[in-house]
Design a protein around this nucleic acid. Sequence first.
DNA 1: TCTCCACCGGAAAAGTTGGTGT
DNA 2: ACACCAACTTTTCCGGTGGAGA
Length: 418
Amino acid sequence: MGMFERDQQVFANAEPLDDSYEPEDIRERDEELEKYQRALQPIIDNRPTSNIFLYGKTGTGKTVATKFMLSHLERDAAEYDDIDLSTVWVSCENLSSSYQVAVALVNTLRENQTKERISTTGYSQQRVFDLLYEELNALGGTVIVVLDEIDNIGHSDEILYGLPRARSNGYVEDVRPVIIGISNDFQFRENLSPKVKDTLAEKEILYPPYDANQLRSILEPRAEKAFYEGVLSGEVVPLCAAFAAQDTGSARQAIRLLREAGELAQAEDADTVTEEHVRDAQEELEKNQLYEGMQELTTQGHAVLCALAYHQALNEVPIRSRDLYERYVNICDRLDTDNVSERRVRDHLSDMNMLGLICVYERNEGLSAGRYHEYELDVPLNAVLDVLLSTNRFEEIANIIQSTATDNDLLQSGISNY
DNA sequence: TCTCCACCGGAAAAGTTGGTGT
DNA sequence: ACACCAACTTTTCCGGTGGAGA
């Protein structure tokens, strides 16, 4: 018998379960699409067009809807000789300022030209904006600028001021920029500077989270395409929809869950995907998320986590921050690493709390001991040690911690959903 | 009800890194 | 070689907080 044998196949075509899959029709968003279409209509009519902002959490269909609308718009605009339409799409996922967005726009616009790409630092902001206006001028006509995940720029919103006013300020001629902003953060507009807030003419479209029924309706056609007939037991799709609806209301999450369930079933050579597979998939995905979160911490983050793990192994948890800091400094000394300030360690702890790796308790003992926080692992000590053991720098100390916690219960400890 | 502990966490300053242009 | 630029990280500084004990 060979080491690799073909598994029982449950997937007919896994593509519809891929993040990048673009469905040919968009479900459960009729109202939003209608609004969207009305907002874009002026482009076809050669009328002034407002900027458009879409608000909604991840996985609520904002990006998919935009891709869908723009491809229709482009196709239809081509029918009219007097419409000169182009689009630029920039994901601001890793861009934290207007400056970087401007750089990314310039580079995207230059993609198909021989001109060189520009670097992400070094120029003054005005310089980059000038380069951007230059590229826009070269394009001419209506230019739709899609800024996906625009909330990443935070308070640095100059681009939202400069771009819409490029023409009235005389930086560009014969170019009408239309901004489509996509934001995961409902508060984003509130946090804009007053100057931008009251001059940015815009249409807003809200994308609320999906409920379980909507998710089911989104999953069904994809599931039908992705799996062989009869492979999915009846409760699988509803359960994926229910889990995702309870948690985030994100279609992406529901789809990932469905795919993971399918992969688990396939791996164990099952001929049907069952409710149990979905539950296992849910657990698996959560576990992966925590594991990745731990691995992506910086060295300093690992040192702090290591200090907490040490106390967990000694069963001295929850532990207040100043004692934890002492242990952390100790570990840094031993590793011959520089240590950071107490304030900075508080930041690392708060990051880890966000990731769900640790839990924080507020204590207040009044005038005898004041207010402080206490910390404890929220994942099993074993899992933390796994990560630390695979990191060269922490291997040795992780071994020491492991031998400290001889008691098996301690290794499992950490209030766990892991 | 008032006080006061101890540190939380926001904000600003300072230091680093990796770039441009002259 | 030098001044300048922006992003990030870390340090410095310090006002604010909420409940036990007076």
